[in-house]
Each structure stands twice: as structure tokens, then as C-alpha cells.
């Protein structure tokens, strides 16, 4: 494997976004890119990351290799990379370590780290292709704000999506709160758009602890997409350049 990223920033932010949810995981490398799928310890949430080969310049991977990595350790190594550094990830065929090289843009500094790999026996889940009943795109910062505000009211949020908009409702001991985002297009700045497509109304409840955790990915993308169908896990997607993505799946709360 040899994969070079123009800016370490992307990889730093991806790892930062998932490291509190999953601790040990395989980065599955093949000729299509670097993928990761892992559940949290309590099997409530699942993270699915894809960094396509096109995200890297260049990308070369001659055979499928899983790189079993302790994300806490990886975070320590990535601290040494500045956001604007060129990052190269390298590995041998049957590796004991993954090699990370950080180069300053002005090329007067090269840092090289070897991170020990671990054998991780990870369950892979089949994520079915789902035609979601409702899809809502919104500014990622707005979603983060809503989740953190409502977490002060309640542990759970009910998300309801209709043609009029998407509503987040929390009921707690101190009272209730709700936030509605109406569909709208901002002609000056499409990053501010709220876009809803709906085949049938949905209403589901989720743990805000997990949703606020997913929001650690906010810096990766201006917009976030929520995909909902009744009685299936919510998908929260941060789309990245070159068809790469960071997706989180969250099992709904089960009715009263």
C-alpha cells in the first residue's frame, strides 16, 4: 500500500471524528481505496468510512490488506502531522506496522512514524441498500447545534420529517424543546440549504449522546445528510470529495 494525501487534515479529522465511538478497527485497503466499518461496544451505532482511491494522489494497493489499528495510538501519531502536511500511508504485504510520513509543504521537514498493527477479528455487517422514506440535507453546523442544545433537555430526540420540514423534539424533566428546519434554498450560498425529499412521513427516536458524538465529524463537510425510514437505523452522512464519505448508522429507540 502507498497512499498519499495532499493534506493530512482530512485523515486527522476522520480519525478524530470516530475515535471516541470505536477504539480498535481494521482499515481495509484494496485497489478501490481505504474502507472501515466498525460498531461501537454496545452495538447501537456503526461507522462506515470510505476514502476512495481518487482521494489520494497517487494511490496504489496491490492486494487486500486489513490494517488493524488502535485509534488512540493513531491519534497520538497524527498529532505530529500538521493539517497542511502531505501525508503518505505505506505498508508492506504482510505488515507488522503501518508507516506514516508527514512532509511540510515547503519540504524542509519530513517526519516518519511506524505504528504497530494489531490482529482485529472484526464482524462485518451487510448494510442493505435502502430507499429511505425521508432524506434531509442541512448545514452540518446547524445539526450539531440542534443536537447539543437538545441534549441539555433530554437524553433522546424524536426526529419527524414531513413535507413542511424536519423537526427535532426533546422532552425532559425541565420541559420540552423542539427545533424545525424548513426546506429552503439559499441562492447565495448553497451550503446553507435545507433540502428535504420525502416519500412518506417518518418519526423516530434516537439517543442524543450518539448523535452529538457523530457531530464530531462536522468539520469534514459543510452539509450533513440524514436518511430515515420508519423502524430502520438512521444514516447520518458526511460526504467528502471524490465520492469518499463518513457515514454513521444509529439504531432507533424502541417504542414505549
Amino acid at each position: 500500500l502507498e497512499a498519499r494525501l495532499e493534506a493530512a487534515d482530512l485523515f486527522k479529522k476522520v480519525v478524530e471524528a470516530i475515535k471516541d465511538l470505536v477504539q480498535h478497527c481494521n482499515f481495509d485497503c484494496n485497489d478501490s481505496g481505504i474502507a472501515l466499518q466498525a460498531m461501537d461496544n454496545s452495538h447501537v451505532a456503526l461507522v462506515s468510512m470510505m476514502l476512495t482511491a481518487d482521494t489520494f494522489t497517487p494511490f496504489r494497493c496491490d492486494r487486500n490488506i486489513p490494517l488493524g489499528i488502535d485509534l488512540t495510538s493513531l491519534t497520538k501519531v497524527l498529532r505530529a502531522a500538521q493539517s497542511s502536511d502531505i501525508l503518505t500511508i505505506k505498508s508492506e504485504d504482510a505488515p507488522d506496522v503501518v508507516n506514516l510520513v508527514f512532509e511540510g509543504k515547503d519540504q524542509d521537514r519530513i517526519s516518519e512514524y511506524d505504528l504497530k498493527l494489531m490482529d482485529i477479528d472484526q464482524e462485518h455487517l451487510g448494510i442493505p441498500d435502502t430507499e429511505y422514506a425521508a432524506t434531509a440535507s442541512m448545514p452540518a453546523a446547524d445539526f450539531k447545534r440542534i443536537c447539543s442544545d437538545l441534549l441539555l433537555i433530554s437524553e433522546a430526540v424524536s426526529i419527524e420529517c414531513t413535507k413542511e420540514g424536519i423537526t427535532f423534539k426533546a422532552e425532559g424533566d425541565i420541559g420540552n424543546g423542539s427545533v424545525t428546519l424548513r426546506q429552503h434554498s439559499d441562492l447565495e450560498n448553497s451550503d446553507k440549504n435545507v433540502d428535504i425529499s420525502l416519500t412518506e412521513p417518518v418519526a423516530l427516536s434516537f439517543s442524543l449522546k450518539y448523535l452529538t458524538g457523530f457531530c464530531k465529524a462536522t468539520g469534514l463537510s459543510n452539509q450533513v445528510r440524514l436518511c430515515l425510514s420508519n423502524d430502520v437505523p438512521l444514516m447520518v452522512e458526511y460526504a467528502l470529495a471524490n465520492n469518499s464519505y463518513l457515514r454513521f448508522y444509529l439504531a432507533p429507540k424502541i417504542g414505549d
Binding site: H43, V44, L46, H124, P128, P233, Y249, K253
Partner: peptide, 14 residues
């Protein structure tokens, strides 16, 4: 009260 569902009850193990 409401319980928390598990992701493995929706997505099958490969």
C-alpha cells in the same frame, strides 16, 4: 419506557 435498539438486529452479519 423506551429501549435502545441494536444495530445487529437490523444489519445481518456477513
Amino acid at each position: 419506557g423506551a429501549g435502545q435498539g441494536s444495530i445487529t438486529s437490523f444489519f445481518a452479519k456477513k
